[in-house]
Design a protein around this nucleic acid. Structure first.
Length: 307
DNA sequence: ATCCAGGGGTCAC
DNA sequence: GTGACCCATGGA
């Protein structure tokens, strides 16, 4: 029997909370969650149905413990947060087939062991994902995280609990009203500032949403709809479909990290070797997004770093 | 100083 | 549809 402010989620097979946490804490200055290494857990603030919550997820043997730290409690709310966590950690997917495919590949089979249980960590909110992509376009990740922190701490909602302080990503309504100059003051380039403000207007005026995108049936239609927006190119569209809509077969073509991982494994000759890329991913039908994610994970393995 | 970083837009062919 | 070129900004 659990209290009304917490619930246990049973871990699926091939699930490692530790691996997932590692990804969420890979030495970058992430401003949208707090990792607690001592307690082996993570906490985060979110907005659900216009209500704010701070919740934590921690390891509890064969389960994950989800606890409401701040906000409305009760069964309905804890159920909603449970669903959020299951989605975030991609807990409802059976990775068995993916691991079978990995083990069939000489150069990649080590991943099934070394990264065992790593899940494709999602970003629930489409608007946040697109903003994050725009921020990250063509700059190094540590600077991208800096820009995101400035944006979030300047325009996001802050929630203070006894233990800590949390931020929620700014709303499109807020950022639609921000001036280009203000964002440039945060060291956004003119281009990034324009894209962010434009996307914010599109979302705040109701012309784009995750729900809207989900009404489109095919991946290609969804991709094309995203790309029709200024600032959203092939890379961003694929990234968003992969992280937010959880499309199983999206490859962010052109991604520098992906290319580095592929060449680090000796899987491609150069960045334009699209034939080899197609050939490799062709073997991972239904799991292309997962393969991309695992290749990103491999970038932290010293022997596969290109520098 | 120079090159690079989890791209995107534009324009010419 | 492909390729060349420009755009910005901090980090190494």
């Amino acid at each position: 029997m659990t209290a009304m402010n917490s619930v246990l989620l049973s871990k699926p097979d091939l699930f490692s909370f530790k691996e997932c946490l590692w990804f969420l804490d890979r030495n970058y200055d992430e401003c949208l969650h707090h990792i607690d290494r001592n307690n082996n857990g993570i906490s985060k603030a979110i907005l659900l149905n216009d209500a704010e919550y701070v919740f934590s997820v921690s390891d509890s043997d064969k389960d994950l413990l989800v606890n409401i730290e701040h906000g409305k409690t009760g069964k309905k709310n804890i159920d909603m947060l449970s669903a959020y966590v299951r989605e975030w950690f991609d807990m409802d997917r059976d990775l068995k087939l993916f691991y079978e495919l990995l083990r069939q590949h000489k150069k990649l089979r080590y991943m099934a062991t070394d990264f065992a249980g790593l899940r494709l960590m999602g970003i629930a909110d489409l608007y946040e994902t697109l903003c994050w992509c725009i921020i990250g376009q063509q700059i190094n990740l540590s600077f991208a995280y800096k820009l995101k922190r400035r944006l979030v701490e300047t325009y996001g909602m802050q929630i203070k609990t006894k233990e800590s302080s949390y931020f929620i990503f700014p709303t499109p309504e807020t950022l639609a009203q921000v001036s280009e100059e203000a964002l440039r003051g945060l060291q956004f380039s003119r281009q990034k500032a324009d894209y962010i403000i434009y996307i914010s207007k599109v979302f705040s005026e109701g012309n784009m949403s995750k729900k809207k995108l989900l009404t489109l049936k095919t991946t290609e239609e969804r991709k094309a709809t995203l790309i029709s927006l200024k600032g959203i190119g092939v890379w961003t569209a694929n990234y968003a479909l992969m992280k937010t809509l959880r499309d199983p077969d999206c490859i962010p073509y052109g991604d520098i990290g992906l290319l580095n991982a592929l060449s680090g494994h000796g899987l491609i000759k150069d960045r334009k070797d699209t034939r080899s890329i197609e050939k490799l991913f062709g073997k991972f039908e239904g799991w292309k997004s997962y393969l991309v994610f695992y290749l990103w994970r491999s970038l932290a393995v010293p022997s596969f770093q290109t520098k």
